[in-house]
Design a protein around this nucleic acid. Structure first.
Lengths: 335, 335
DNA sequence: AGATTTTTTGCAACCGGTTGCAAAATATCA
DNA sequence: TGATATTTTGCAACCGGTTGCAAAAAATCT
């Protein structure tokens, strides 16, 4: 079907090597030769077979993009940024949807079979060991949105989720809330665990504050809404730190559906600062996560690793910051 | 780096063909041989190089997944369904993000270089000619969510957008609205054009009804909200047919931010029936688009084409239906 | 112009597999 | 048990490219 290098060589009346060289930059070809070959290639509609060449060069320019976050709209942006960023560098994303799979073995094998040059694990829920499995099998890997650690075993680009939890707690305390709650994503998600840990570690210093917690079964609008509707049936806390903006928006919806008002009756603080959070009708107080920077940095790291596969693992942590909007009661008067 | 078939052959003391055969199903290998080879393979941690084998078999099991809809959350679900569906059939999605590119040539070339077995164009905005370019270059293609036609040039799996437009118009008319408007997605999107066409063709029979239109610059929450805020500054229509639920939700937000109520002051009908539309706080009347069926059918078609690349192009159209909720005024009393 | 250096080109082996064909090994039958 | 049919195995060529090496061609120098 497709035109091969050999056919071009015959048409141009030159050797196969000559054709190969005109399509490899940095190879030695005279102008005359190049023109002859390009002519023939154009006539025949030839374009080199990337896979065949990868056989000898050992590079496929394929990057596995592995994720299990297919419900949080923020990840559409993440995929957008990753695919564009990779493409801009001549790399091709091979997408792996883990669904609920948490064992890395099958995806590692699969990506190895396709000889990917590297893999990006884009997930805020998978443990560090997941990405580690790629490295162990010789696949350069960076874990984006993963748990950052002082002793990273693989490259991690992320925010400090523990600190985010603390930040949320500090904010609620400062606003004078005395009965607060954490509404996390799936309990097994590392980001949930870390945000939880930070939240409660900060509250430990405030024994007078009542604190509770529960978990939504996914990072999604619906899961947040369902969980909050459930909580509303008992007696809800004064303020909720939600593990993600999508949860928060579901939560806001549940609160309003129940006839209560935000922030008068219940306060909410989210995490991510997604676009919708800025809407006046939502106006969510949240913690900003610098997604674009995380993705860009992940790609840079990936690219660096292509040249230096055994690069010493590093954790890149980006700062988060509170974005004050309207879902928490105002600061009590300072006097 | 990776273990090759040759090394396994040596280790097992057999020919390379023997090893190859044990890893190809349907090949003739004795049990004894198979055990010997599998043993050696396991010891060495061998797994076959999919790309190398594709060279001779002519099949890569790679499917290009081409899209430019990276802002509409519904597409996260689309990607989820596609990636899972393809994976379940042993196919691998190679993702291509078109961004704003509308010329198929670069993506076609790229996918040909990677010898994909086929391509799925998942886009409600690209014209049929886009997918056609893949076919012309010998890449089996199905266009999902594309414009359906009575004389399809490529496989299309979709809904009838023109009919959706008509359906929306009929519904608004039946509710007694006399001043209606179409708020579409990008004007260049085929889905926008078709919904527009259907909407106004139906209204042509009702000369007494005032109708206007405008376009948001993307299928996204924000774009819908921005456009509606703009419209609210002049004097808005009584009811809006929005080209998509994400637009509708943005529109609802804009209306409420402006202090008006839905459906008392302004009616809204959307298209897609995304999860959020069901929320009580949104409760959007909309037209249901059977996304799951479209994706499943697209994959089936793709799989069928792998065996029969020159399959005669077909258009598969799935029915849409109105989902009545609370963003249109009730039906006027029948007497 | 002839000798020498530099650049360009083709040969042939290789990347990691698959496969048609014929020989070798087993199985089946009388 | 020997003859015949069937299955299993290895050889060698091939898939579509790349690349080290040496020969050929072109450029530079005296």
């Amino acid at each position: 079907m497709a035109v091969t290098l050999k056919e071009v060589a015959i048409r141009a009346g030159v050797s196969r090597s000559a054709v190969s060289r005109t399509f490899t930059d940095g190879a030695s070809v005279s102008d005359k030769m190049r023109r002859k070959v390009e002519r023939a290639a154009r006539d025949l509609g030839y374009s080199p077979n990337a896979l065949a060449s990868s056989l000898t060069t050992g590079r496929t320019k394929l990057i596995g993009l592995v994720s299990n976050n297919f419900h949080n709209p923020i990840f559409l942006q993440v995929f957008d940024l990753f695919t564009r960023g990779l493409q801009d560098r001549g790399l091709r994303p091979l997408l792996v949807n883990l669904s609920d799979e948490t064992d890395p073995q099958t995806s590692v094998r699969m990506l190895r079979q396709y000889s990917v040059d590297g893999a990006v694990v884009a997930s805020s829920t998978l443990p560090p060991g997941f990405a580690k499995a790629f490295r162990d099998e010789g696949v350069p890997v960076v874990h984006s949105f993963g748990r950052s650690s002082g002793a990273p075993e693989v490259h991690v680009v992320s925010i400090d989720n523990v600190e985010c939890g603390r930040m949320a707690a500090r904010t609620l305390v400062a606003r004078g809330y005395r009965n607060v709650a954490f509404l996390g994503g799936p309990e097994s998600a590392t980001s949930t665990q870390d945000r939880y840990a930070g939240f409660f570690s900060e509250l430990a210093a405030h024994r007078d504050i009542k604190a509770s917690y529960s978990f939504a079964d996914a990072y999604s609008f619906d899961a947040g809404r369902r969980e909050m509707l459930r909580l509303m049936r008992a007696n809800p806390a004064e303020a909720y730190f939600c593990g993600d903006d999508v949860l928060s928006i579901g939560v806001l919806s549940a609160i309003r559906e129940s006839g209560l008002r935000v922030p008068d009756d219940i306060g909410v603080i989210g995490l991510n600062d997604m676009e919708m959070s800025r809407w006046e009708s939502i106006n969510l107080t949240t913690i900003h996560q610098p997604i674009r920077q995380i993705v860009t940095s992940s790609i840079e790291l990936m690219v660096a690793m292509l040249d230096e596969p055994d690069r010493y693992p590093e954790a890149r942590v980006f700062p988060s910051s509170i974005v004050e909007r309207g879902t928490l009661r105002p600061l009590p008067p300072q006097n």
